[in-house]
Design a protein around this nucleic acid. Structure first.
Lengths: 198, 198
DNA sequence: TATTATAGTGAACGAGAGGTCACTTGTCAA
DNA sequence: TTGACAAGTGACCTCTCGTTCACTATAATA
């Protein structure tokens, strides 16, 4: 019945791993945050490493489902301004959603220790975003909204600065508002530079 | 006499912290890697945290000395191609120098736990590079090598993608050569886009 | 009703952590 | 030569870690 405990353990693990890292997290605290005693956790996972692996399984599956599939491509904007709007919607979500913030933090902290975390980090932080926007930019070029150029290069030039500011938001939450404004300014700069000449 | 031990401890600490993080590092291993026993370390530092703080002091001082001062500004390139050359020299150094690699890794791993690490991470990964290249780009604009625009915005647009690929090199050293080629390609793309119209 | 599986408890364990301390050794100044 | 001091040793301390296990409570099943 109340065996959503197994899932609640993963939620708590994400929270603690993202704050203190894998090595800095202990099972006692994790259990306590769920209102049970540490041996209770071992009824659901055989070890700390098993919790970590299950969490990574979930993160990988979630990423594949939400960002890795073609049908989840956002629509191609109808105007340069539409690109900024869409970008800001995505960015606003990604820097305010606690679960996604914690996922990024965990991947950041464990990328050098765990191979799967490393792979997922590269997707999350670099290749995934670039591929997504390469599609979008190719569509915008077809519509005559963007100067014809290599869509992958433009996507990289567009997403990497945004990604850097998203990382800044994770690191310094106080500066979130400024960072968001900076992203918007960068978006407008980008369309001014790369927008198709009228 | 042989009291460079205090300094050797910091070297070993940088190595271990960058691989396993602060929490994942233990003094026994650290001491053993220096050929001494753990209590020997406590003759030089009163605690693990003291080692961490001394290491951070050193990293902060090193950064201020080498990247934070005006007189260490690289010369403004004489041609668009010169920008690429200079960039590749800097990048090649930064992705191959072990100490700098380890410094980036440590800052990456501890940015959420230690406030000074967080500040230094933001400088290392974002603002420092941007300010440096803002100076360079302002100079290039004066020379007519770059289209007139906001130097800070251009510097951000230039350095953030490069920084993303430097992080990729740290995360996936196997892909270092591809990443360097990608940085060079991006540099050429950048001057094609932002170079002053002849 | 008796049985059985599931979820959770609390005490215990061994290993390894950070840290202390009395002691030895080597070096140099008085 | 002696004394003082810095550097290093090894045994030991306490604490916390991940993990185990015998046990209990509960709820569904036969």
């Amino acid at each position: 019945m109340a065996s959503d405990t197994k899932e609640r353990i993963l939620v708590a693990a994400l929270e603690m791993f993202s704050q203190n890292g894998y090595a800095g997290t202990n099972i006692r605290e994790l259990s306590a945050s769920l209102g049970l005693v540490k041996s209770g956790v071992y009824k659901h996972y055989e070890s700390k490493a098993a919790i970590w692996n299950a969490l990574l399984d979930e993160m990988i599956a979630y990423y594949a489902e939400h960002f890795g599939s073609i049908e989840h491509l956002p629509p191609v904007p109808d105007s340069p301004e539409g690109l900024v709007t869409m970008t800001m919607q995505m960015v606003n979500f990604t820097v305010h959603d606690e679960k996604i913030i914690m996922t990024r933090k965990v991947l950041t902290l464990e990328q050098f220790r765990d191979e799967r975390a490393r792979e997922l980090a590269t997707k999350h932080f670099l290749t995934g975003l670039t591929e997504l926007f390469a599609h979008i930019f190719a569509g915008m070029m077809d519509k005559g909204l963007l100067r014809k150029d290599d869509p992958k290069m433009l996507a990289f030039a567009y997403t990497a600065p945004i990604s850097a500011l998203i990382h800044l938001c994770d690191r310094e939450p106080d500066q979130k508002e400024e960072a968001l404004a900076q992203i918007e300014a960068f978006g407008r700069h980008f369309i001014a530079v790369y927008g198709a000449k009228q």
